[in-house]
Design a protein around this nucleic acid. Structure first.
Length: 439
RNA sequence: GGCCCUAUCGUCUAACGGUUAGGACGCCGGCUUUUCAAGCCGUUAAUCCGGGUUCGAUUCCCGGUAGGGUCACCA
């Protein structure tokens, strides 16, 4: 454990938080928590044109949903006086200067503040990639502020990281070429260089940097689609990193323990929705019955709620049948809305064809009638009562018509499970009804 | 194009310089108490290419190639 580790997540509020940004937050978080350090959220809103409050709110909302807690929050725009202070100092010391500019595009200023670039080779040791060397001379005197009160990214980042005591800057690989010029600014203001870890990029389908434009979904969208935050966290942590063991399912606490920055991959990783779905299924399986029921109830479309036999209890009793066939909870709404499970709420009218003869329906009905009503909620008992008969006559011949009589569906859960949920009275009613259809 | 980063199954990845190159997801196939789902079992599938170094390279070095990032008065 290293002492006094301080990391930060520094998104700009110019769009909804998505997986690309989010994984940076996860790694910074894990690194800080593992070392008993601090994790700071800094919203980089110096670009007043593009920054929006709703996006800042979305960042906060997303982190809250994902349960990534931070120790402090800053809005970069609120640090303006600090930025100004350093800017003035740099100018006074001749390390930066006010430059007269030719206006090339709309919004350009006639006057900006440029950094006097000493034009040398800068090297830094990246925690993931090792030594990186770059010649900064071809950068020229780059712009660090539009005016004393309008610093630009590089200046603001360096000043804030310094003022906040950031010891490890963990960010995306797309920042790697920004690092040398930031180190130059650090040297000019007398700030120490933090450790850097440049994470491989999260890639979209065409293997370019994941972005909203390239189909990245907002984290809050995953929430709305019924993904579990634990699953999203787990998947993102495993994207570009692994513990070196064969364990894949981790709680947040376990991740904090086992995370190791030095095991982070160097190459970019494709964001695989299919694998996320698998993680989500695994975490749904691990949810308590109560939670599953609550989620299912919350996703039930009004159309189903208006059905004659509908009740919350009924929906709760079938919730396990729904949750075992979903990737995420929005699929519950899909299945219910599509009518896949409507037979639990309303009596089906299966066609003769679907009933496939139904030769043994009346005998099935007799057996069911003889079952004690108080044991009927146990599907095992119903199965026991019918199994020998079904085996004797042919399971398909007996069980298919029974299942169809009860569900009216080509696909469904097994007839015993369905009968147990429907109850004796409704089961008899439906078998009788099917018999009448066949006559 | 300049600079920088990267390179193992389709995808995510494992492998002190010595392994039949391992696992997971997906795909495909099979099994299970009819159908569906779940579950279980199994199959398929990879070291980008060329040189070195070495008794021996996925691993180290060099060169190609390919991909990506970045070259703003955005972050």
């Amino acid at each position: 454990m290293k002492n006094n580790i301080i990391t930060r997540f520094a998104p700009s509020p110019t769009g909804l938080l998505h997986a690309g940004n989010y994984r940076t937050a996860v790694f910074s978080y894990l690194q800080a928590r593992q070392n008993g350090g601090k994790f700071i959220l800094r919203i980089e809103d110096t670009d007043r044109e593009r920054s929006k409050k709703e996006y800042a709110d979305n960042i906060i909302e997303s982190l809250a949903w994902l349960n990534l807690d931070y120790d402090e929050t800053f809005y970069q725009s609120e640090q303006a006086s600090k930025h100004r202070e350093y800017l003035e100092k740099l100018i006074a010391e001749g390390k930066a200067y006010v430059s007269q500019e030719e206006i090339k595009k709309e919004g350009d200023r006639a006057e900006v503040i440029r950094f006097k670039n000493p034009g040398k080779k800068v090297s830094f040791r990246d925690l993931i990639r090792g030594e990186v060397v770059m010649d900064t001379s071809d950068l020229g005197d780059f712009v660090i502020a539009k005016s004393l009160d309008e610093p630009v990214f590089h200046l603001a980042v360096v000043v804030d990281d310094y003022e906040m005591g950031i010891t490890q800057v963990i960010r995306g690989e797309d920042h790697i070429s920004n690092t040398p010029r930031q180190i130059l600014i650090q040297e000019a203001i007398g700030a120490p260089t933090p450790e850097y870890a440049h994470l491989p990029l999260v890639l979209s389908a065409d293997r370019s940097k994941l972005s909203k434009r390239r189909g990245a979904l907002a984290i809050t969208e995953y929430r709305d689609r019924g993904y579990l935050p634990e699953a999203v966290l787990n998947y993102m942590a495993m994207l570009g990193w692994n513990p070196g063991t064969e364990q894949e399912i981790f709680s947040k606490e376990e991740l904090v323990k086992v995370f190791d920055l030095s095991k982070v991959q160097k190459g970019g990783a494709f964001f695989d929705q299919t694998k996320l779905d698998w993680f989500n299924r695994e975490f749904i399986k691990r949810q308590t019955q109560d939670k599953k029921v609550k989620e299912v109830l919350g996703r039930c479309p009004t159309r189903v709620k208006e059905l004659p036999l509908y009740s919350d209890d009924k929906l709760a009793s079938i919730s396990h049948l729904l949750t075992e066939r979903i990737n995420n909870y929005s699929e519950v709404a899909d299945m219910l809305g599509r009518g896949d499970f409507d037979f639990f709420f309303t009596t089906p009218h299966p066609s003769q064809e679907l009933l496939r003869g139904g030769t043994y329906l009346s005998q099935t009905l007799d057996i069911v009638k003889n079952l004690p009503a108080d044991n009927f909620s146990n599907s095992e008992d119903i199965k026991k009562a019918l199994w020998d008969f079904a085996t004797e006559k042919g399971r398909t011949e007996v069980l298919w018509p029974m299942r169809v009589a009860l569900t009216g569906q080509e696909k469904s859960s097994d007839p015993f499970t369905v009968a147990a949920i429907l109850g004796k009275e409704e089961t008899i009613k439906r078998l009788t009804h099917a018999e009448q259809i066949l006559r």
